[in-house]
């Protein structure tokens, strides 16, 4: 038993160390972004100067990233939810193949996808230099997450029976889609939406090749700042990024938490009801 206790303590300590590995640099970078001179250390004093500097120089990247994320969300909803429903309904070979194909932009490195887009559409200057060029890449990369998230929910609920129930009451195809399918995969849509926004806001692999000097997203700006500016500014910029992405990640965690199955009330309560 003593042996077990020791093992347990070791595991606990190890887990704490892993946690420190992940969290300490985050805290350090936040502090660095608020310190007057990081080289000197905290005793040089705290300041918001770097944050304001970043805000003045780079706030456009923040807004572009947010705009892209929302546009990306709209497109993945429009393209992904109907597709997920179709895939849920037809669980054949073709459906599997489509699902597999859809995953390719995630499996294949972003650089490759970006190169493909550049060689195919780089010649259309108006498109190449617009934010829509980046948007296309983001949609390719995030679409499978929306589809999978919705598909996961659709395959747990007893969709066929629910739809039959609705049809028996007189609901046609699109009425069933609107009244039964969409409301009942709400959780999947929500989780997928958060995932899409989070991934779009953080996407760099493709965006670095797809962007132009006039279409810099937040991660592109970050890479710029890390490469060429002083550490404090890079850190302050990272701090702004954290402020943007942490609420998204925390909400995702809450959604991902396994929900308790709501059990039906025991059958004897029927007496009270009647």
């Amino acid at each position: 038993m003593k042996h077990g206790k020791l093992l347990l303590s070791l595991q606990f300590a190890f887990t704490l160390a892993v946690c420190a590995f992940l969290v300490v640099p985050v805290v350090m970078s936040i502090l660095a972004g608020l310190t007057v001179n990081y080289f000197v250390g905290l005793q040089s004093g705290l300041t918001l100067r770097w944050v304001f500097e970043v805000w003045d120089a780079y706030r456009d990247t923040l807004f572009l990233s947010l705009g892209l994320a929302l546009a990306c969300l709209a497109l993945t909803l429009l393209l992904g939810v109907p597709l997920a429903y179709l895939l849920a309904r037809s669980r054949g070979r073709l459906a599997r193949a489509i699902e597999e194909l859809l995953m390719l932009p995630v499996a294949v490195p972003g650089l490759a996808t970006a190169l493909g887009l550049i060689v195919a559409y780089g010649g259309f200057a108006g498109f190449r230099t617009s934010a829509a060029f980046i948007l296309v890449g983001h949609v390719l990369f995030t679409l499978p997450f929306m589809v999978r998230s919705v598909l996961a929910v659709l395959s747990v609920i007893d969709l066929p029976t629910l739809e039959e129930g609705a049809a028996s009451l007189g609901a046609g195809f699109w009425q069933r889609f609107r009244d039964i399918v969409l409301p009942n995969c709400r959780n999947g849509i929500l989780a997928g939406a958060l995932m899409v926004v989070t991934l779009s806001v953080g996407e760099f692999n493709m965006t670095w090749l797809l962007h132009t000097p006039f279409t810099k997203t937040l991660p592109v700006g970050l890479a710029d700042a890390y490469a060429s500016l002083r550490l404090e500014i890079g850190s302050a910029y990272t701090l702004i990024f954290f402020l943007l992405i942490t609420p998204l990640l925390l909400t995702l965690q809450v959604l991902a938490r396994p929900r308790r199955q709501s059990f039906a009330a025991p059958d004897n309560t029927i007496e009270n009801a009647s």
Binding site: I157, T161, E164, G165, A166, S168, I180
Partner: peptide, 20 residues
């Protein structure tokens, strides 16, 4: 006619009540 045009009432084994 598909089911939605037949005006039938149907009770399913798993009830098929809409959770939403």
């Amino acid at each position: 006619l598909p089911i939605e045009k037949r005006n039938v009432g149907m009770v399913f084994q798993s009830y098929a009540l809409f959770p939403n």
